[in-house]
Amino acid sequence: MELYIKNMVCNRCITAVQNELLKLDLHPIDVQMGIVKLEEEKLDDEKLLILNNHLNALGFELLDKGKSRVIEQIKNLIIEKIFHTEFLEQKVNWSGLISDKIFHEYGYLSSLFSSVEGVTIEQYIIRQKIERVKELLFYDELNLSEIANKLGYSSIAHLSAQFKKVTGQTPSQFKSTRASEGQRKSIDKV
């Protein structure tokens, strides 16, 4: 049986979900961001409700079949590529990547995503990239040139312009005020 779970965005999320499944005496075969495969063929409604309550307490949510699963798959794919890839190519073919992994035409996926999320897939990708830039700036391990290279920006100027458009600050301004509260968002809130 496959379950789709919203708000799984990192390896700690995977561990937390796996632990909850084991506490409820369920038998996960594979746990990935957004998708869990169980040995169980089917869960009764009561068990699903209990699982959902446990997941909700941790900030996760079981998704019903259909459109919400597709949207969560798109988000997980984007997050995985931006946050868990060593270097993004400068010209990522997001439409091809997304449609190949989710097995739907990109036009349909784009329209569905926009209608439910209120932003385009492209805007969501930009927001995620900016959150990754914020993270890298916050920890001060890479300079702006290295960050631009890591995230596939054609230049520091392009990264800076996009950063300012989204945040209202230049990367330098952000870096100098990084001690301020509320500068970064949780990935699932972007």
Rank of each mutant, 00 (worst) to 15 (best):
M1T: 00
E2F: 14
L3N: 09
I5C: 03
I5Q: 03
M8G: 10
V9T: 11
N11F: 15
T15F: 15
A16Q: 11
Q18E: 11
D25Y: 12
P28L: 04
I29R: 15
G34E: 08
K37F: 12
K37N: 11
L38D: 07
E40M: 13
E41M: 04
E41F: 11
K42N: 13
E46W: 06
N52K: 09
H54A: 08
L58G: 06
G59Y: 02
F60L: 01
L63Q: 03
L63V: 01
L63S: 03
L63A: 08
K67V: 05
S68F: 11
K75E: 09
I78H: 09
I79R: 14
F83M: 09
T85K: 05
E89A: 15
Q90R: 15
V92Q: 05
G96C: 05
G96E: 10
G96L: 10
L97Q: 10
L97T: 06
I98L: 14
K101C: 11
K101W: 03
F103L: 09
H104K: 13
H104V: 00
H104M: 03
H104T: 00
L112P: 09
S115N: 10
S115P: 03
S115M: 06
V116D: 01
V116G: 00
G118W: 04
V119H: 06
V119L: 09
V119D: 05
I121Q: 04
Y124L: 02
I125K: 01
R127L: 14
Q128C: 05
I130L: 04
R132K: 15
V133R: 01
K134C: 01
E135G: 00
L136M: 08
Y139M: 11
N143C: 12
A148W: 08
K150I: 00
G152F: 03
S154T: 10
S155Y: 08
I156E: 06
L159V: 09
L159T: 06
S160M: 02
S172A: 14
K175I: 01
S176D: 15
E181N: 15
G182E: 08
D188H: 15
V190W: 15
V190S: 09
